[in-house]
């Protein structure tokens, strides 16, 4: 199996070349184009309850698509819904990673996926949701994000603070908890940053350079409401 990220940046597309007999998994609805020899099936990856947790509580799709090269070699192009970058992360035996729901574009080779619940505070305020995807095994997985993706290594004994809404993925050896972004609650609120995620090394965190929720809120001011008294004003 070979892969390549084309048009890196805001319009990134993942190209995967599968040889006869190979399989991969991708986010439902991510296909842009494919060779006729590749077959696509919807699969409940991680079991029924895992799929339910992901879709109902995690905002992820219930089904993942399994792309298989049953009839011969072929290529598939995959792209996320959001405008943003795509990054391939390699996964070796013994390692594990967590990915925010909705940010996993594809899993190649022998990647296993499960769903893990986050702590209440992290679920409510991290922007990653209550349920996150837990990946282990060996191979590669592909994350997508809003804006560019930055990989930040955090050495052992060091900490790193990421504003909530910007976290995409992190290695299983890191741990994070919610903190106020400023020195005091007042400065956190007035600075517009509010809460942030404080990661502890060793490990890595992948962050997106744009916050989809903040962008949605910004767009909201230009979208006319569906009615009601307030829609009459302005």
């Amino acid at each position: 199996m070979q892969y390549d990220v084309l048009h890196e940046g805001s319009n990134a597309v993942l190209l995967v070349s599968l040889k006869r007999g190979e399989k991969m998994r991708a986010e439902a609805g991510a296909m842009v184009a494919k060779s006729p020899k590749l077959h696509i099936r919807g699969k409940m990856w991680g079991g029924f309850f895992g799929a339910m947790q992901r879709s109902v509580l995690g905002g992820e799709t219930f089904f993942f698509q399994e792309v298989s090269a049953e009839d011969g070699n072929g290529d598939i192009l995959l792209a996320p819904s959001l405008i943003g970058d795509v990054k391939v992360i390699s996964l070796a035996d013994g390692q594990d990673y967590y990915v925010q729901s909705g940010c996993l574009l594809a899993a190649l080779d022998h990647v296993e996926m499960g769903t893990k619940a986050q702590k209440l505070t992290a679920g409510l305020f991290s922007g990653a949701g209550f349920f996150v995807l837990h990946l282990k095994g060996s191979g590669h997985f592909v994350i997508s994000a809003f804006g560019a993706i930055m990989e930040v290594p955090i050495p052992a004994g060091q900490e790193y603070i990421v504003d909530n809404g910007h976290v995409v993925a992190w290695s299983g050896d890191t741990q994070y908890h919610m903190v106020k972004a400023g020195k005091t609650w007042w400065s956190s609120m007035t600075s517009g940053e509010g809460l942030a995620c404080k990661f502890q090394g060793p490990g890595k965190v992948w962050i997106q350079t744009r916050n989809p929720r903040a962008f949605g809120a910004w767009m909201g001011q230009f979208v006319r409401g569906r009615g009601g008294v307030l829609s009459l004003i302005g």
Binding site: S90, P153, P155, S171, D173, G201, P202, G203, K204
Partner: peptide, 8 residues
């Protein structure tokens, strides 16, 4: 994990 920041 070494000091390089690479994967472990």
């Amino acid at each position: 994990y070494d000091s390089s920041g690479n994967a472990p």
